[in-house]
């Protein structure tokens, strides 16, 4: 009876589903890698360095100040990767590192680490970079002749500015906002445009997102709600005044697809209720259009998500589910 001597006595339930938090997180990491590969394809090998710097920035503080073994759950790696994918290809590496470190330290560790934070750490890091280095973060180096050539001034000395002589190219949203020129939707869809490392190919992001949604590692309601709201709102504005960009342009330009699929759906910082998820997504879509159309910035996805992150506790509060038997069906019908 050797088996009997080491019998467990635990409380019910005694079985559990096979999904685990680290597994979810590492799967997300895996689905982000194709985006990184695509970014490398479009912008050259330099982007690998930028993303690596962002990941290092995120992982180091988590390792030294986070829970013991917190790196194992993979969430810091996601933060670093996501941040890296939203950066311009030629950003000095030290800035990418600062962004990752700030995002993890002030977006996550001060709240108590995984699961406790209110704002998406990657976006906190991104917003900090945007506010701290407004020029560098909006400098989009133009394509070079050689794929292997590094773009921008990646190796600027820490704390020092990047060399200023970079040849820049505009993003589709910048062209639309400041020069009133549009870009072909197909180009946007397949990614033949300028922009951040990971946000150019809407098609690839959608495929990766669909895989995660099928595995139920992300809540499909959030991106669907974001896309619907953006399309409807932008479409209505476009109908009223054709000078405003059309819904397809709105959907596939900038970081909307990346943000809606990989950032808005961060479980920790999105609502837990299904009704809440719809509201959350709609809020993001609405704010994105407002900021892009009437705001002073070309891109608003990051801010839209951060603002809605702030609203999440409130959304959760007002969308508590109706409990079983609280209002019997026959009364309602």
């Amino acid at each position: 009876m050797s088996a009997e001597s080491r019998l467990l006595v635990t409380a019910a339930p005694h079985v559990g589903s096979t999904d685990s938090t680290p597994r979810i997180m590492w799967t997300v990491v895996a689905t982000l890698l194709p985006l990184l590969a695509a970014g490398t394809w479009f912008f050259g090998p330099g982007v690998l360095l930028v993303v690596a710097a962002a990941v290092a920035g995120a992982v180091l503080p988590e390792h030294f100040f986070g829970r013991r073994g917190a790196l194992g759950d993979g969430s810091a790696a996601i933060t670093g990767l996501l941040l890296g994918l939203t950066l311009p290809p030629g950003l000095p590496l030290w800035m990418a590192f600062v962004g990752g470190a700030f995002g993890i330290a002030f977006g996550k560790l001060v709240f108590g680490g995984l699961g406790q934070n209110v704002f998406n750490p990657a976006l906190v890091g991104r917003a900090f970079l945007q506010a701290a280095f407004p020029v560098a973060i909006t400098t989009w180096p133009a394509a070079t002749e050689e794929w292997m050539t590094l773009r921008g001034d990646l190796f600027a000395t820490p704390l020092m500015s990047a060399a200023a002589d970079t040849v820049t190219a505009a993003t589709p949203l910048g062209l639309m906002k400041f020069e009133g020129t549009g870009t072909e939707v197909l180009e946007l869809f397949f990614g033949q445009t300028g922009g951040s490392i990971g946000e150019t190919s809407a098609l690839l992001i959608l495929v990766c997102g669909a895989y995660l949604a099928l595995k139920r590692y992300l809540d499909w309601r959030i991106p669907v709600s974001v896309f619907l709201t953006t399309a409807v709102f932008a479409g209505a504005l476009h109908l009223l005044n054709p000078e405003y960009p059309g819904p397809l342009f709105m959907l596939f330009s900038g970081g909307l697809v990346l943000g809606a699929i990989f950032m808005a759906t961060d479980m920790v910082t999105s609502p837990v209720t299904t009704k809440g998820a719809w509201i959350f997504g709609a809020g993001i879509g609405f704010l994105v259009v407002v900021i892009r159309v009437w705001g002073g910035l070309a891109e608003g996805v990051m801010y839209a998500i951060l603002l809605m992150n702030a609203l999440v506790p409130f959304i959760n509060r007002v969308t508590q589910p109706r409990v079983f038997g609280q209002r019997p069906k026959e009364d309602a019908s």
Partner: peptide, 26 residues
């Protein structure tokens, strides 16, 4: 971090997020 420090950090992040409204209707 518990207490006023955290409240200020949250306020700082909110303030960062509100920067998204810069230039509205300008």
């Amino acid at each position: 971090t518990r207490g006023t420090g955290l409240v200020l950090i949250i306020a700082g992040t909110l303030s960062l997020a509100f920067m998204g409204f810069a230039g509205l209707l300008s």
